[in-house]
């Protein structure tokens, strides 16, 4: 299932299973994009656009705004590909970082107080929605299973922050726990998620 390019896989060493988007092919494509390679950019688009759009949609809810964010993020990748630094993480995590940050920035700048209350009211259903959406594909299934291995408080802290776009003080308020507790649960939850997913 994982499509591991021959020149990246060390002979005789089993590569851990990773999603296609996180393998060396994307890094290579980004390097080519940095040199202005338009075909490589279509490769990048095809590998990440759905994940970027899905993330934006989770945070923003609004389909039109989510599409805007997706396009902005892809154009940012095109524009700044030469400044991608492999030492600070995989190309996929770099792009997803740009996507999530941009979606959250939009929420924080545009959200009016009334809106926020509305979102708070909806927050209780976030987790169920995540589970609804993560079906069928293997990747979805693995993430769902790994989210399930977190404690309730860890999982709620992580999903409210990542999918809900809430800051940790807001998450603490929504969950009715101390901010210090939420900070710790977010970190512990992500560490457990990382270990469960087997990412380095």
């Amino acid at each position: 299932m994982p499509d591991v390019p021959a020149d990246d896989a060390a002979p005789g060493r089993a590569e851990p299973a990773r999603p296609a988007a996180a393998d060396g092919g994307l890094e290579r494509a980004i390097r080519a994009v940095a040199r202005g390679d338009e075909r490589a950019f279509t490769t990048v688009y095809d590998q990440v656009a759905a994940a970027v759009l899905g993330t934006a949609r989770r945070v923003l809810r609004d389909p039109a705004q989510s599409e805007e964010v997706m396009q902005e993020v892809l154009l940012e990748v095109w524009r700044t590909a030469a400044r991608f630094d492999p030492a600070s993480g995989s190309a996929f995590s770099w792009i997803m970082m740009l996507a999530h940050r941009r979606a959250v920035d939009r929420v924080r700048t545009e959200q009016r107080a009334a809106d926020r209350q509305l979102r708070a009211a909806r927050a209780s259903i976030e987790y169920d929605e995540v589970i609804d959406a993560v079906e069928s594909r293997l990747e979805h299934e693995r993430v769902r299973r790994c989210l399930g291995s977190l404690t309730d408080l860890q999982r709620e802290s992580v999903t409210l922050a990542y999918y809900g776009g809430y800051s940790y003080p807001e998450v603490a308020r929504l969950l009715g726990v101390a901010v210090g507790t939420v900070k710790t649960r977010m970190r512990d939850g992500l560490i457990r998620l990382r270990d469960c997913l087997g990412v380095e």
Binding site: M96, Y162, L197
Partner: peptide, 8 residues
């Protein structure tokens, strides 16, 4: 977290 994004 990138995988959380990929999952949706």
């Amino acid at each position: 977290t990138a995988r959380l994004g990929a999952a949706v």
